[in-house]
Design a protein around this nucleic acid. Structure first.
Length: 525
DNA sequence: AAAAAAT
């Protein structure tokens, strides 16, 4: 499944044979003659792929895969990439981001051919799984073209990758470590690489890859076209974008609006020792097609997975310490439906796109609130309802509060029949220095009043944050939360959604909690 | 705190 055959013969046949006609009709951006600027094409009459100026072999592949309408990011980015512009895309996975760069790249590359050891384009991904996924994308969309690609990732034989490079590749899809390694061994020249994609930049940043990325970018010609994608636009990311891009066309697509409204969430507070049992109950009670279960630690992934298998569940583990071959085969088995439950670390929290995932379970509350958003974003895709349930232990209140603050809504509490539901522990948390963890015992033990009236109760160190947000417009956090999203989950009472006068966006999360109306998972065993 | 990525 790796590189397509590189016969030296009729490379040009793929050329933009059919391009002129459609290209001419779409020299602007908006596919129809809507007066609206392209940036807001979201809700306009649905554009068609055939109007984007892609040539016949690519269009055919798109047709064969059954796609007719580009997603907003595809509709907006593809014309600019084809024009040769740099693109700065603020978009998450699930928005069709990958095809928004693979399609026009194929188009651009289809005009000529690769030379040995001089790849013409490079795509950088933070994890091996993502790299593989992009490679599959290339194979699918490029099946009527004679383009070659190489997947340069760690954990696999370098000799093989070198050989593919020597034959010449058009597209290089790589994780940073292996790419630099190969480069330093001289197996690779990047001087002819004129197309660069930096994907999941915010995650690259989290993972400490940025120095590597800078190093790699320095190896490329400054005469390149760069596409830079990130799920968020924190100041640090903005700085990187300024560094890597020239006069980019900036495209922001909201997270698929479906996500907010089509994920039904729930949280149960249980004793740490009861978690595995609680999870089994949840799994059995759910109308589950397939599920990802996230753990915070690799060790727990192994333990939990073994336990699930022992209890008769179809489960497989995925984390970074497992052999690469097992990582891919497990993922493959899960995608094909052969495996129902994927137990994994945050390796799969972002990016990995598995169609039609019905459930996400957080066996642990994620350390970072953003990770919660990414994790549950694996479900509820494509308009279908997803379910995301989280198990918390009594000492994890601060983490949950951080999540509720970030998302701007409470996670409805649920009870699991047969498992004791606990409350947040009384112990003031000392373990982590996060400021908002200072808690008011009274407020936490009692269910908070449903009318969030008393603005005197606040997080201990409150006064400052109250107005700061308004003054500085677009901080990273605030852009991610959208207080206005209507929700249709049906689980939440309606009151807490209303902004509370006097707090601006900084309503303490506990004040937004619904009265303890606990939805109950139907018992099933 | 943990995880990811080069050997």
């Amino acid at each position: 499944m790796s590189a397509k055959k590189t016969s030296s013969a009729p490379a040009r046949s793929a050329k933009k044979a059919a391009a002129p006609a459609p290209a001419a009709s779409t020299d602007g951006v908006a596919p129809t003659d809507t007066p609206a600027p392209a940036d807001t094409a979201e809700q306009e009459a649905q554009p068609l792929f055939s109007e984007l100026g892609l040539s016949e072999p690519i269009q055919q592949a798109i047709d064969e895969m059954g796609y007719r309408h580009p997603t907003p990011i595809q509709a907006q980015a593809i014309p600019y990439v084809l024009m040769g512009r740099d693109v700065l895309g603020v978009a998450q996975t699930g928005t069709g981001k990958t095809a928004s760069f693979t399609l026009p790249m194929l188009e651009i590359l289809s005009g000529s051919r690769a030379r040995a050891r001089m790849p013409r384009s490079l795509i950088l991904e933070p994890t091996r799984e993502l790299a593989l996924q992009v490679a599959e994308n290339f194979v699918n969309y490029g099946k009527h073209l004679k383009l070659t690609h190489a997947l340069l990732i760690g954990g696999e034989s370098m000799a093989e990758q070198k050989e593919v490079l020597n034959r010449g590749v058009d597209v290089l899809i790589a994780t940073p470590g292996r790419l630099i390694d190969l480069f330093e061994r001289g197996g690779l020249l990047l001087t002819q690489t004129r197309l660069l994609v930096i994907d999941e930049a915010d995650r690259m940043l989290d993972m400490g890859f940025i120095p590597d990325i800078e190093k790699i970018v320095a190896m490329l010609s400054p005469l390149r076209q760069t596409m830079f994608f990130s799920a968020t636009m924190a100041p640090e990311i903005r700085r990187l974008a300024d560094m890597f891009l020239r006069n980019p066309k900036e495209i922001t697509v909201s997270r698929p609006s479906s996500v907010a409204s089509t994920i039904e969430t729930g949280l149960a507070i249980v004793d740490a020792k009861e978690k595995r049992r609680a999870l089994r109950k949840l799994l059995r009670a759910s109308d589950m097609q397939n599920a990802i279960v996230f753990c915070n630690r690799k060790r727990d992934v192994d333990v939990l997975c073994k336990s699930l298998v022992k209890h008769g569940f179809s489960a497989g583990p995925l984390h970074g310490d497992l052999a690469q071959s097992l990582r891919f085969s497990t993922l493959e088995a899960f995608k094909s439906g052969e495996l129902k439950i994927l137990v994994c670390s945050d390796i799969a929290a972002r990016g990995i796109d598995i169609g039609g995932l019905s459930h996400v379970f957080n066996f642990d509350v994620p350390f970072h609130a953003e990770d919660y958003v990414h994790r549950i974003g694996r479900t509820g895709r494509a308009g279908r309802t997803g379910h995301a349930y989280t198990l918390a232990t009594p000492d994890e209140e601060a983490l949950v509060m951080a999540i509720e603050k970030l998302t701007g809504k409470p996670i409805p509490r649920i009870e699991i029949p047969g498992v004791e539901t606990l409350d947040w522990s009384e112990e003031p948390r000392t373990g982590n220095g996060r400021r908002k963890s200072t808690r008011k015992p009274a407020a936490a033990t009692e269910p908070p009043a449903a009318t969030p009236a008393a603005p005197t109760a606040t997080t201990g160190d409150a006064p400052a944050p109250r107005k700061s947000r308004r003054s500085q417009g677009g901080t990273a956090g605030s852009s991610a939360t959208q207080p206005s999203t209507r929700r249709e989950s049906g689980l939440l009472p309606s009151a807490p959604d209303q902004p509370v006068t006097g707090f601006g966006n900084d309503v303490p999360a506990f004040m937004q909690l619904p009265r303890r109306e606990k939805s109950v998972i139907p018992a099933d065993e």
